[in-house]
Design a protein around this nucleic acid. Structure first.
Lengths: 254, 254
DNA sequence: CGGACCATTGAAAGCCGTCAAAACAAGTGG
DNA sequence: CCACTTGTTTTGACGGCTTTCAATGGTCCG
């Protein structure tokens, strides 16, 4: 383990701008009290009141909606460094569930703490806003994936996006990335059934495009797979390079 | 025409809190110079630089992504009162196109003007943030729709959502709502093909659940249709009732 | 060894897409 | 007023992608 590596949340902000000493300190203060959560435990429950935000320090979460017929759709995956549950600011009751997929460590942020940030740390507040814009861009890609791609490119796009998001956070393991999802869960992400996802994955393996075993995913043929999926990672790579991101990097009137 | 009715943008904010005189005035100042846009014209072009926001005063816009094989997915519809192109703050180049579906009147907001709002009108800024959270909730519903519903309930859900969004803005015409979409465009919203959307719509008409003609939609059997679609409008109706919305309504330290 | 969970496989059915072609509507110019 | 064009809705037949429903096998762990 690299003990000099700052926590995931800090790195998440550092991608946008260099934190000042005060900002860094405040983040540390918030993050220091992390709660451990075991898999399957729900952080936020669909339909129930939700009165706080969360910072995900390690582990993966799934956000999902349940349908009456028993099926569910996974809306997005939350990775280390993500801010979780911002929607709660706008609604009394949660619109979807958020549950631990792996063991997680999470820190809770009361609305009052959120307001403190808004008041005292405008750059952090702005970063939170930017993060929800990235979130939106990812959701848009998921819509395209679910609405307009056949099964193979759909799964391919899903894997490529995840691979990229993980590598960008420095969570890669060489060319591989951790991949704790079951095929059932992949199916719930891409709107297919488990058996069919299984068949698609086998096609990919047979063509030598991916390796997926032991909860480790390796994209063997990124170019081929990206071509098949129509994957263009701009929405992940170039996030924060717009006007608002630049403003954050202007010299501080401190 | 009701000349006492404030413009759509103002009503959009008023849903969250009562505008102060200054806030109202600032909005009016921004909105007074509206630009007329004819159908099919693009406000924002996928892949091209985007350097401003827009306020939609009247008419409908579509946000869509183009795929290489010629198909496209419509990501969301923008209705009168919506803020358009917030994503542009986070990216140098647009990730999707935004085009006029009907004749529209739009006012452009430079990033500098946006920053002014952020600095001088914190409640307006907060409202913008809340609006992107509502947007997120709608996108989540679309994901579920695209990923996990069969064609009939999918189209039903789409129609119900639109009906509700329009009525909530006071854009209904009795029990009906304006409905300028072609079946091709409906198909691009719900991830189906035009012929199949046609068949679904005819089923709905045959069952007496909807009327759709002359660009006017009437939901004849809301309960039946909602049941078939699994439609629960909380995400539209109860938006802004959370903690953040309440803070906006606290007495102003003016 | 037993149990739970997950991956894998097969066969059959069906939903939805594909591809035309036709019917219809609306506007345009002669 | 009619011929013509363009865009939208409608219809049909066919094929195939994906689901459904089990059943089998594998793996991990108590």
């Amino acid at each position: 383990m690299d003990f000099h590596r700052p926590p995931a949340i800090v790195r998440s902000f550092e991608r946008l701008f260099s934190l000042s000493a005060e900002e860094r300190e405040h983040l540390d203060r918030i993050t220091c009290a992390g709660e451990e959560i075991e898999p399957r435990r729900k952080l936020i429950v669909e339909g129930k009141p939700c009165r706080s935000l969360h910072l995900l320090t390690s582990g993966w979460l799934v956000e999902s909606k349940q349908l009456r017929d028993g099926t569910r759709q996974i809306l997005n995956l939350r990775l280390p460094g993500d801010v979780v549950g911002i929607e709660c600011l706008a609604y009394k009751n949660a619109l979807h569930s958020t549950a631990a997929l792996t063991p997680c460590t999470v820190t809770t942020l009361s609305f009052e703490q959120f307001q403190e940030i808004q008041r005292d740390f405008p750059r952090l507040a702005a970063a939170l806003f930017l993060m929800t814009l990235l979130e939106g861009a990812i959701l848009h890609e998921w819509e395209v994936n679910l609405g307009r791609r056949a099964a193979f490119p759909r799964v391919a796009h899903f894997l490529l996006e995840l691979d990229r998001r993980l590598h960008l956070r420095g969570l890669g393991i060489g060319a591989a990335v951790p991949f704790p999802l079951t095929q059932q869960e992949i199916a719930d992400c891409v709107g297919l059934t488990t058996p069919y996802v299984n068949r698609i994955l086998q096609q990919m393996r047979a063509k030598g495009m991916i390796e997926l075993e032991n909860r480790l995913l390796t994209i063997r043929e990124p170019a081929l797979l990206a071509k098949a999926a129509g994957f263009k990672p701009d929405y992940i790579d170039h996030w924060g390079e717009g006007w608002f991101g630049q403003v954050l990097n202007e010299p501080q009137p401190d």
